[in-house]
Amino acid sequence: MVESANRIYAIKTTAKQERTVADNIEKVIREQKDIHVMAVMVPEELKGYVLVESPDSIARIEQLVELIPHARAVVQGSTALSEVEHFLVPKPVVSGITEGTIVEIIAGPFKGEKAVVKRIDSGKEEITVELYESMVPIPITVRGDSVRVVERSEDAS
């Protein structure tokens, strides 16, 4: 397979300004012709960085950073797309959670409560839990990303 000429560079940004930086990069690239950027990627998992796909050398990317507010620096070195392509297919948030897993609810009215997972809906990315310390079992359906795994169930069978 022919390796593409495009490299992936990481640009450090101000926290929570990743999307703004991506938009600004697009704006700057459209206005001038010296720097070539094919795409800008902002993975959710990678806080404080944006990934830039470009055939240019790192010096050009450093030049680009100078033009963009909230962009701070270029991480030295570059990588191939194969290293970062897993960001393009985000794994479902409910993966790694099985029935019987003890989770802590981290958002919503039951924040801070521990609960046992009863049912998983991977399509909707929702899980149904029962509160640990509740006298009567009340099933509560919460979003998959509003829980944190405390302890995995021992028998997965």
Partner: peptide, 12 residues
């Protein structure tokens, strides 16, 4: 979030 600027030459 992904901004595609040049879809013809972009691997992403």
């Amino acid at each position: 979030y992904v901004v595609i600027i040049d879809p013809e030459h972009s691997e992403i």
